[in-house]
Write a protein that binds this DNA or RNA. Structure first.
Lengths: 154, 154
DNA sequence: TGCTATATTCGGTACATGTCGAATATAACA
DNA sequence: TGTTATATTCGACATGTACCGAATATAGCA
């Protein structure tokens, strides 16, 4: 039972899904999981593994693994329902997970550079490391601030 | 001819280099290129391929490829000198290359979501896509603004 | 032009990762 | 407890990527 209604629309959906994969793969999301995320974003409601298998053309094991991956990234949520073992998946509203990971990464980078600077005796090198640390910290703070502002909006 | 002066310091440098690799690999930088970047950051001046080979324990071909990669990322610069074929490498001051790539990526993501929204007929889904597009755009702008401010500093 | 120093490319190999279908586990329920 | 529907794990296989050493290319210079 496919989730897609007509032929003309399918092309657009496929394009969207493929493009989403193209953009997400460089962020470290495996191809299939990235496509699944695009698929979930376009789906009008929670979908089952069998939906995924039908519409994405992957095996059930692959679908299962990809869905769990997206859950780990907090990009998707599973929605169990009583009375059946069937699990439904949907895109999560916590779509800031990826960016939060970024801020964490920038923070760690700044930290490492700072520590590196402290352990460096050559002034020129030490100064460069300090400046870099500052650079990454400033950018981290900008993102962090934007994320906080967003969370508080509405 | 190694670039490292004494035994006690080596441990710290190695730690720094390894940690840098750990942080950069998730950004899509291959292990050896990431280690090389850490090494360049700690080096007090431009280094030759032979320095890299000696200090990083990789083959010359690997060093050559890794250095070229860093150049492509604009994380390193090569400095040719007349009178010899020897090339020296150093960390670049354009260490914002990675973050600029991020802003571009966020922009494309926002764009794709926006276009996806336009092609969606279901209101709830369409609205979600619009909100997401806005989210990524806001964050892109925050980073972009921080980068501009940094470039104009001093 | 030939010789030396150096960088780059190439072919093969090892390793990691994603995918599949089959096997297994588990929830629901008669 | 047995049967069915469903999800998950497992083992094998394919594919891609990074690495190495050898081969090749090229700059400098006698």
């Amino acid at each position: 039972m496919s989730n897609i209604t007509n032929r003309a629309e399918l092309e657009n959906r496929q394009d969207f899904i493929l493009e989403m994969a193209r953009l997400l793969v460089p962020w470290g999301v495996p191809e299939t999981a990235a496509r699944l995320y695009g698929y979930l974003l376009l789906s009008d409601g929670p979908v089952s593994l069998d939906n995924i298998v039908a519409d994405l053309g992957v095996s059930k094991s692959t679908a299962s693994v990809a869905a769990r991956l997206l859950e780990m990234y907090t990009l998707a949520r599973r929605r169990s329902q009583g009375g059946t073992r069937r699990i439904l998946f949907e895109a999560s509203e916590d779509y800031d997970g990826m960016l939060r990971a970024q801020t964490r990464s920038l923070e760690q980078l700044a930290d490492l550079l700072q520590k590196g600077a402290q352990a460096t005796r050559t002034k020129a090198t030490r100064d460069r490391l300090k400046v870099m640390a500052e650079f990454y910290l400033v950018n981290r703070n900008a993102m962090e601030s934007a994320l906080r502002k967003w969370a508080a909006r509405k």
